Amino acid sequence: MSSHITWHECAVSKGDRQRLNQHKSCVLWFTGMSGSGKSSIANEVDRRLYSLGKRSYVLDGDNIRHGLNKGLGFSREDRVENIRRIGEVSKLFADSGVIVLTAFISPFAEDRNRVREIFPSGEFIEIFVDCPLSVCEQRDPKGLYQKARKGEIREFTGIDSPYEPPSTPELVIESHKYSIDECAHLVVGYLRENGII
């Protein structure tokens, strides 16, 4: 980092924005394998928060790769950079007083922990969307597992690249046992129980 760069303090603080919004800000970090239901659950939670008058926004893995992370591939190095950038963007959203929901496979524990470290205590909420590989493959909404099995996609999580489940997530959702509505209900319940909304 250049020695010519200095942090400029904002006139309006995160606390000011939270008071205006009448709720705390945080990142809900949905992690799990492709097809586990991360995006569906995150979007349903976002819809519910909106209906409650809360300020929230979803950052989705595929959508981010259409813009901000468009030049990144799926090598280990690119995946690390992908998650680093999302972590920094999520922190900006949280600093603006918003509840940000991220839906990224984020397969490596080290990368998720690195993001956790940039947030104040209690603002990084890791949500493990736990779903057996067999169910994810059965769902296969984008046909990615099929392509990975044929060797058309390399380093695909769960096939020829590992997924490291969180050891101590704030919330575990077994998405193969519950509907999207029920999963979203669990997340909103967590936010209420912990005084975020």
Rank of each mutant, 00 (worst) to 15 (best):
M1P: 12
S3H: 13
I5A: 13
I5P: 09
H8F: 13
C10I: 04
C10G: 13
A11W: 11
V12C: 10
V12T: 14
K14P: 01
R19N: 15
Q22E: 14
Q22P: 01
K24A: 14
C26M: 12
V27D: 04
L28Y: 09
F30W: 05
S34G: 07
G35K: 04
K38S: 03
N43A: 10
D46G: 07
L49D: 01
Y50W: 14
S51R: 15
G53A: 10
K54I: 13
R55C: 13
S56L: 09
V58M: 11
L59I: 15
L59Y: 08
D62F: 03
N63W: 05
G67P: 11
G67V: 07
L68M: 15
N69G: 11
K70A: 12
F74Q: 09
F74E: 09
F74I: 11
D78P: 13
E81Y: 09
I83W: 04
R85Y: 01
G87D: 03
S90K: 08
F93D: 07
A94N: 05
G97Q: 06
G97S: 07
V98W: 09
V100N: 08
V100A: 14
L101N: 06
A103L: 09
A103M: 11
S106P: 04
P107S: 06
A109S: 14
R112N: 04
N113F: 06
N113A: 12
V115D: 06
V115T: 09
R116I: 01
F124P: 02
F124H: 03
E126I: 04
D130I: 00
P132R: 03
V135C: 08
E137T: 02
D140Y: 08
P141M: 03
K142H: 08
L144S: 01
K147H: 05
A148R: 00
E152A: 14
E152N: 10
R154G: 12
E155I: 00
F156T: 00
S161W: 03
L171Q: 02
E174S: 12
H176T: 04
Y178R: 12
Y178K: 13
I180R: 06
A184Q: 08
A184F: 06
V187T: 02
E193C: 02
N194D: 00
I196Q: 02
